[in-house]
Design a protein around this nucleic acid. Structure first.
Lengths: 339, 339
DNA sequence: GTAATTATTTCAAACGTTTGAAATGGTGAT
DNA sequence: ATCACCATTTCAAACGTTTGAAATAATTAC
């Protein structure tokens, strides 16, 4: 049976023979409403399955109770896991989340931003796409007083903004130190695209770990990939080109890259591969299925990153933090050692 | 600069010295509005970055333009990919999507359903959690005339409902036939939990393929796992217990299960493993990194499943299909052969 | 030049809620 | 009996749209 008349405050008011405002106030537990009245109203509301109309409330309160989140894609484990934290924390605070994927295309990012703006989200969390240099489409939000939190990816140049990022320097430092403590002296660093700021942060973590343990830096042990298989192979070839100074260990920017590296080495130099040790970023669930697994992984705790982004956003939305006091939150990584 | 007075129809109307309704109708391209007036209004709207207030429209239209989707989790590749289809198609039709995860807990499913009901979603897409037997929390939607589409997971008993499912019978038939055509005669079937209807559908696909190719069925070649590593190992041990009738090929319910199987066999019987051929469901990106990869995979086309679910939901919402004409849409699988 | 017709604009109510101000009813003090 | 003072309830406007009906302006017909 489909009910034809929706259960609204008005409907309840008629049933109870009182005014709409009394019903509203009773349900919102106003102190001026008589206790007995409240009880009657609340019982009737429960009985008739009254559900307040969000659109009406939102209109009245000039809010949408929706948080928008824009990210490159949902196939990448980091983002998927971060969504979990976002979802969880937002839900706990009465907010819904609308997710938009950009596939790292600026065009789609702009489109997504426009759509979320139209949806009048109360706040925006965004992991910018690889080639976002211009921030006009995000400036619109600020103009309307809608707070924006940048997360996961650091806007390249020094944009004044609120950020929640993984402490990728610390993560890479720990990974490198771990390999050093396992007596490696030729540790290679396989970085990501140079445009991404994390590439440099991680490189710095690597460098600092070497320096703190008096290991000379060797530029031959550093190479960069653009994530795709081809450029990863090229980088690995480069790292292994100096045969009398072969790396015995490798820190990779990302596990997907590390997997490609292992795959390539398995094919061309299995013997050496067996004696190497690897660490990547991601703590991917499938690591345990590799025949030659990494010794450890930098767990980036994406759920925490997501949760912190929402937490900050809520504070901004509730004006607990002033809009102009730009926040930068770093979520530490955790080194996970296998076996 | 933060604008204090929001740009509303009223604001535009005052600027243009005309009534609110003229502005509204001009923007909505009513035929009764003068062409020149329309132009003036539209220009002004663009200039002032007018964005219609969704809450107001939704209130007026008694709609939310939100589709809710409830699913077990976002870590499973199938669901993540299906979301992509959902997102895409919903966005293209002007709908936003709110995602809720249940982690296969009925409790959380109920909670999610309640929250979406409160959000007044216009429709619901759900992949029920493993142990959902009671559908009262979903019945609420039907009572309010909000269409529900069940997807990805088939409600166990014969609930009258709209469904969009992968054609898992066909997928498993093709996988089995493929192995048969590669001259295998001892093909094992590793099924999922018996509670899941797909387990039986896939089994039937397997059986039919055997039958159609005159291969005798051997019950020793069938085992079931509960997805966790332990029970997968137990199942594999069972399949390999009859040493004079060892399987030469294996069809696994799911690639995550297949990976566990390969891992175990790599440890205990590497020699035999090398000569075996495997197929699982999922076409997981990680497959190419395995030292002993499956020969093929059943690609379930999750994006299509998601898209079809939204498509059906939209038809129900627009009353293009009567609510009581229960639809069952099967999305065919595609066998992906590697190398 | 007036009436009839058509084109265009405006009015006003509605969607379902919130909330400060005003109204009502009752109690106790004088 | 009158007044002041609470406690409680109701009024009425507002949030920003949409839309059928009514009003007005412009055009055509005669």
């Amino acid at each position: 049976m489909i009910r034809n008349t929706p259960v609204t405050l008005k409907f309840l008011a008629e049933k109870l023979k009182m005014s709409v405002s009394t019903v509203s106030k009773a349900l919102n537990d106003y102190p001026t409403i008589n206790a007995y009245t409240k009880k009657r109203v609340q019982e009737m509301a429960r009985e008739l399955h009254f559900t307040p109309n969000k659109s009406a409330i939102n209109l009245q309160e000039r809010k949408s109770r929706i948080i928008g989140i824009i990210l490159p894609n949902l196939l990448d484990h980091f983002f998927t896991r971060s969504i979990y934290g976002v979802e969880q924390f937002a839900t706990a605070n009465g907010y819904n989340v609308i997710i938009k994927q950009t596939h790292d295309e600026l065009e789609k990012e702009i489109q997504a931003a426009d759509m979320l703006l139209k949806s009048r989200v109360d706040g925006l969390i965004i992991a910018i796409s690889k080639n976002t240099q211009d921030f006009a489409h995000l400036g619109q939000f600020e103009n309307l007083g809608i707070p924006v939190v940048y997360y996961a990816r650091n806007p390249s140049f020094n944009l004044s903004c609120h950020k929640v990022l993984g402490n990728t320097f610390q993560g890479c430092y720990e990974a490198s130190r771990f390999l050093i403590q396992r007596k490696h002296r030729q540790i290679a660093y396989l970085g990501g695209p140079k445009m991404i700021s994390f590439t440099h942060d991680r490189f710095n973590g690597y460098i600092h770990a070497l320096r703190d343990h008096d290991i000379p830096f060797n530029a031959d042990l550093v190479a960069y990939t653009d994530f795709d298989q081809q450029s990863t192979i090229a980088a690995i070839q480069q790292l292994f080109s100096n045969t009398d100074y072969l790396p015995t260990a490798l820190v990779a920017f990302k596990e997907s890259v590390l997997f490609d590296a292992i795959k390539y080495l398995r094919a061309v130099n299995y013997a050496h591969l067996r004696n190497m040790e690897f660490i990547g970023f991601g703590n991917h669930a499938f690591i345990s299925y590799l025949d030659i697994p990494p010794v450890a992984s930098v767990e980036e705790q994406p759920e925490d990153v997501g949760e912190n982004a929402v937490k900050l956003l809520l504070q901004l939305m509730n004006k607990e933090i002033d809009h102009s006091e730009y926040q930068k939150i770093m979520v530490d990584c955790r080194l996970v050692v296998y076996e």
